[in-house]
Write a protein that binds this DNA or RNA. Structure first.
Lengths: 239, 239
DNA sequence: CTTATTGTGTGACTAAACTCACTCATGTTG
DNA sequence: CAACATGAGTGAGTTTAGTCACACAATAAG
């Protein structure tokens, strides 16, 4: 992980749950692949029999409906682990995983992982905690997207972005990830135009600012008020 | 489980994941409590260090915002297992668990469960599969609530209800659980009035019917069309 | 059997968010 | 440096869902 001159707000969610020894055990059963930006790791309907670890790069998990409207559920980045293990035979993916920048992705076969957990109780416990954390993140997102209207959804997403891609810059937080208004819209189930207008309002109120398609958070508490943020741990409050 | 003269659509999600032997192991570390309808199993902010098994009864997991609007995330019933294990020290509940009928609830301390998983690899694997299934259910719900408007959210909820509380009656499915329009509204983040009007529309189209506050599904495919249902397994598509 | 209480049904109005149509800015490519 | 593509910004109009205000039905309680 590259060291930054600015202090990092971000934290890697995996390293907080997995001990080094146990993560090494998982690394031993990984198969590495290189994938170019724009390709797909899996499509909706593909068998869901693997976990993935992003050694380098980023992956978006999306879902499209009949009218072509897209919803971005997760944006995974370097160091993230993701995948399904649900024990239903013939389980398939319900979403699509899109590589958004050239990446090195490691696959972990569920079967191999099961064997590992059989043998290493400590790993099983840690893996379970990680799964629990991921589930909690999804639940938190569901709450934020449902309960506080579109402005609340957007603010909660900005807080998540600051936890995932934020670097402190004086009193402000710079979101290092470039995002278009359309992408933000797809993350909260709104339209580009609505997001544009809402960002405008937030800028007018001095809550955020923008510098060449980077968002800068000037008043985190302002955002928190709008989405009734409860200050949940930053490894749960993520994209 | 009482045997019914009508064939059951419902399936218990736990028994499909846990083998009898392993479930017995879990039963050995359970502590039983009786709780009356209207009481609370836990409140938002309480430490989250237990799992729960409903031996008899039902429990709602809800969240309220500042304006008093309530959101019902899950409705658990007899035979269901639920709870959190996320490995964050001092982890607390973000939602409230409300007993909705006189119940017998068994607590499982996370600590005890961890020990058990340490010792029994097969149990650990099954538990993981169960957690994955629960997570998948939450993801499916998030998708349905976000992507297809309020009518879509309602239809997906009716399908979930039929998977959870449905009994086949001729060509129809009767939903055995009594639900008020307000409860349905709180499940999909809508208002009572909107739900009332949407149910009226569905009745007019012959998709559902109502008999003394019980909903009867007459045209499941009609519902499926509205929420672009993909026929996900009925142990994932639940309340 | 009367009276509360709780839930349903409905119309009129308001607010939130989406759609469409277009302009302007920025960045990329031959 | 044109020419094109992509994204931002904005107004006008429409659709969707929420709010408010009641009437009425069903159920429970005294």
């Amino acid at each position: 992980m590259a060291k930054q001159t600015q202090s990092e707000v971000t934290s890697n969610r995996n390293t907080e749950v997995f001990s080094q020894e146990n993560f090494k055990l998982i690394e031993e059963i990984m198969y590495e692949t290189k994938l170019a930006a724009g390709t797909h790791l899996y499509w909706e309907g593909d068998p869901a029999d693997k976990f993935f670890y992003i050694k380098q790069g980023s992956v978006q998990i999306t879902k499209s409906n009949d009218e072509g409207k897209q919803f971005i559920l997760y944006m995974h980045q370097t160091g993230d682990l993701f995948g399904q293990l649900d024990g239903l035979h013939g389980s398939t993916h319900t979403m699509t995983a899109e590589i958004t920048e050239d990446s090195v992705i490691c696959s972990i076969l569920s079967k191999d992982l099961e064997v590992l957990m059989w043998q290493h109780g400590a790993l099983a416990v840690e893996f379970m905690k990680w799964m629990g954390m991921m589930h909690r993140m999804t639940q938190a997102k569901l709450r934020d997207l449902m309960m506080f209207g579109k402005p609340g959804a957007l603010c909660s997403m900005l807080i998540r972005l600051s936890n995932t891609y934020g670097t402190v810059r004086g009193d402000d937080i710079l979101i290092t990830k470039k995002l278009t208004n359309s992408e933000l819209a797809d993350m909260i189930g709104a339209t580009r135009e609505s997001v544009n207008r809402m960002l405008g309002d937030l800028k007018k109120d001095g809550i955020i600012d923008q510098e060449s398609s980077h968002i800068i958070i000037k008043d985190l508490d302002g955002l928190r008020t709008i989405c009734q943020c409860e200050n949940c741990p930053s490894n749960v409050c993520r994209i």
